[in-house]
Design a protein around this nucleic acid. Structure first.
Lengths: 195, 195
DNA sequence: TTTTAGTTTGTGAATGTTCACTAACAAACA
DNA sequence: TGTTTGTTAGTGAACATTCACAAACTAAAA
């Protein structure tokens, strides 16, 4: 699944992420990307075989990175409630530091651009579910979380709420502290779903 | 705010909505749009002064239409819980019939395309809040809904959950019955937020 | 230590395609 | 007769991508 990635490639997909959040998908052109990198358009093709390939590499990198981050932040955290909080705290911290990689959250804006991009987007959502669902199921088994709703429904509500939080952060031009407001919302949600 | 719209213009923005959900924003070209309409590209400019103007007219139309729908569906519905259900049932029904107008929900994919488009997107979100918030506040006053979270937070959770529902519907290629699944999720959410 | 050969990473110029949009003109219809 | 709504044929600009070429570095051979 994961891939080795050269430093120059990482620089390029970072720049691509920045352009994406500045100007949307239609604004992501080879010209702009090369300009941001400080070299000619043709040089991009030394590192990627196509523009689509740049986007896909970016999405795959982000999926793999998120997977690693989630796995790392859960070791030595006990209790489903704390795990839930830690998972999202980690996410908020990451995006606070790397707002241009919010594409991970808003990747659906890229939907229908190409078959391969769609697949990469699905992979990102799958990683999120992979970590969230087991925690909720465990919490339900321990009677920490309500069983009035299925684990899938609870996961859905959590993911949906936090996606919207990120969207509002972006639409506000990153005007508030996502980590603060995000964790506050998460605390609220946990209040709701506690049995 | 609202605008009179000619029938031909409505046909065009409908076609634009279809292309948008089939091929994303990069797929929405004057060529494709004209082809779907069955006439030459140049004819588009008889009805709109630019492509950006088509998108903005579409977003404005959808905002105005949603406003009308919401207002209409709330008359003669008593009780905040029922109002909440009716509001979203109406939304599900609309999108079941007009899936190509899901742009309303995923308009954030168009973010950063242009200043004017951004404004139109904000207007859509404002309409949603305009109807949702008062119902929740009223419900809290009546002690129907929990006051553990602010009305804004509750509205946020509801909107976020249902946005994600719509996204999954779209990603599944409209494979399930949104109205059924959406109303079920809404019932679950109401269970959660009842005090 | 210098020479040489190979690889990596860049350049500038050019490719054909697609883009949004315009102009001159014509049929339909009021 | 004038307005509406369409046509065909174009416009230049922007697009992703390719090509022949050249520095710069790497490392082994002389």
């Amino acid at each position: 699944m994961s891939v080795e990635i050269k430093t120059r490639q990482l620089e390029i997909i970072t720049a691509a992420g920045e352009i994406l959040s500045e100007s949307g998908i239609s604004g992501l052109t080879t010209k702009k990307l090369a300009a941001k990198m400080g070299f000619a358009e043709s040089a991009l093709y030394r590192h990627f075989k196509s523009k689509e390939n740049i986007i896909i590499t970016m999405l795959n990198y982000l999926a793999a990175d998120m997977d690693k981050r989630f796995a790392a932040c859960l070791v030595n955290v006990d209790g489903t409630e704390l795990q839930l909080k830690e998972l999202f705290n980690n996410q908020f911290e990451f995006f606070k530091k790397n707002p241009h990689f919010l594409v991970t959250i808003f990747s659906d804006g890229l939907l229908e651009e190409s078959k391969n991009i769609n697949t990469a987007i699905r992979e990102i959502m799958a990683v999120k579910k992979k970590y969230l669902l087991p925690i909720i199921k465990q919490g339900q088994k321990e009677r920490t979380f309500t069983t009035d709703l299925s684990a899938e429904e609870l996961a859905h509500i959590i993911m949906g709420s936090l996606r919207l939080q990120m969207l509002q952060w972006r639409m506000s031009d990153y005007a508030f502290d996502v980590k603060l407001k995000g964790n506050k919302l998460m605390t609220g949600i946990i209040t709701l779903i506690k049995s």
